[in-house]
């Protein structure tokens, strides 16, 4: 187990180096000149030169790459160009808001999609099954934007059930007053694709021989479904949740923009609009690291669910 972990961590190094290289090349050779972005419209050539000197832009490319790697390794990306806020501080203050909204969404999505998917897979070909498949297809083809625009208008403005937008410093008030509407809308959108996906996983398992065997030896349908089918279908489902986890950390930038939630997603979007390179670079590199770690954790979890899985 330990040897496996060490080897997997070792294998991450080239990938991570690739991500760093990609970000570096992208911003160095395709992006605008940082000195001109920082200097603004009225900067004199001397000022631009001074900024170049300060950022090390006059050094050779390999040295700049080395500076970049050092800033990643020391977790010091400096300050945001737009607000002069330390990037690390930016992460620390924006992440809680993102998690307050995104974690309930992820949990509710899974909790709702699992039983629906199992039900329609069990009743495959029935009217319910086909109706749900049609509804989800149509629901999927409407843009997320429309759900948010209409939902905010109807529930927040017309009916007044929820505040249209807002946020406070108190985590508890955020969770019970300001988070419910965004969570509700995101879950409405997220349940459709989840259900379709989980349905296909359950369908795969329901066709297996062990299901027939379990029924033949007289197990109740509940036992067959919840004990045998469920456990086997968990492997692809866990993979899928693992894949969805990294995006939880940038949050749904659309939700955060619409509801003025001061989270990471909104911050990334602001950074893109302001050409705030340090923020974008930092978040890209760290999220890549996080994604790799989550993938590793997912793989280890397979072992817990399915003893047949051999980690190698």
């Amino acid at each position: 187990m330990l040897a496996y972990l060490i080897r997997r961590l070792w294998q991450m190094v080239p990938t991570l180096l690739g991500v760093v290289l990609l970000v570096f090349v992208l911003f160095k050779y395709f992006g605008g000149d940082p000195a001109e972005i920082l200097g603004g419209l009225n900067a004199t050539p001397e000022q631009i030169d001074a900024i170049r000197q300060q950022l090390g832009l006059n050094e050779p490319a390999w040295f700049q790459f080395w500076i970049f790697i050092k800033s990643i390794a020391t977790f010091d990306f400096g300050k945001s160009w737009a607000t002069n806020e330390a990037v690390s501080n930016l992460f620390a203050t924006r992440l809680p808001a993102t998690l307050t909204v995104m974690l309930p969404i992820l949990i509710l999505d899974v909790l709702l999609a699992l039983p629906i998917a199992m039900w329609v897979a069990y009743r495959r070909g029935s009217l319910t099954d086909r109706a749900i498949m049609v509804v989800t297809t149509v629901a999927l083809s409407i843009s997320f934007l429309v759900y948010i625009i209409v939902g905010q208008y109807v529930f927040g403005f017309l009916l007044g059930w929820f505040p249209v937008q807002g946020w406070t410093d108190s985590a508890w008030r955020n969770l019970i007053i300001y988070a419910p509407l965004p969570v509700l809308l995101a879950v409405m959108v997220g349940v459709s694709p989840q259900t379709r996906l989980y349905r296909s996983f359950f369908l795969d398992e329901l066709g297996q021989d062990y299901v027939r065997t379990a029924r033949a030896k007289g197990l109740t349908e509940n036992k067959v479904l919840f004990k045998h089918v469920m456990r086997n279908a968990m492997i692809p489902i866990i993979t899928n949740i693992g894949l969805a986890l990294p995006s939880v950390f940038i949050g749904s930038f659309l939700i955060e923009t619409f509801f003025s939630i001061p989270g990471l997603g909104r911050e990334v979007l602001l950074a893109v609009n302001r050409s705030d390179y340090p923020v974008i670079q930092a978040i890209t590199v760290y999220l890549a690291m996080l994604t790799m770690v989550i993938n590793l954790v997912t793989d280890v979890m397979y072992k817990a669910i399915d003893p047949r899985v051999v980690l190698k």
């Binding site: 080239p14 690739g18 991500v19 290289l21 992208l26 992006g31 890209t284 994604t291 790799m292």
Partner: peptide, 23 residues
């Protein structure tokens, strides 16, 4: 494969944002 792993390691929407910031 290495290139694929690199592109897969960054969540899709973030990759799009990073490209959009530059292009």
């Amino acid at each position: 494969e290495w290139l694929y792993n690199v592109f897969e390691a960054v969540p899709g929407i973030l990759l799009i944002f990073a490209f959009a910031a530059v292009f």
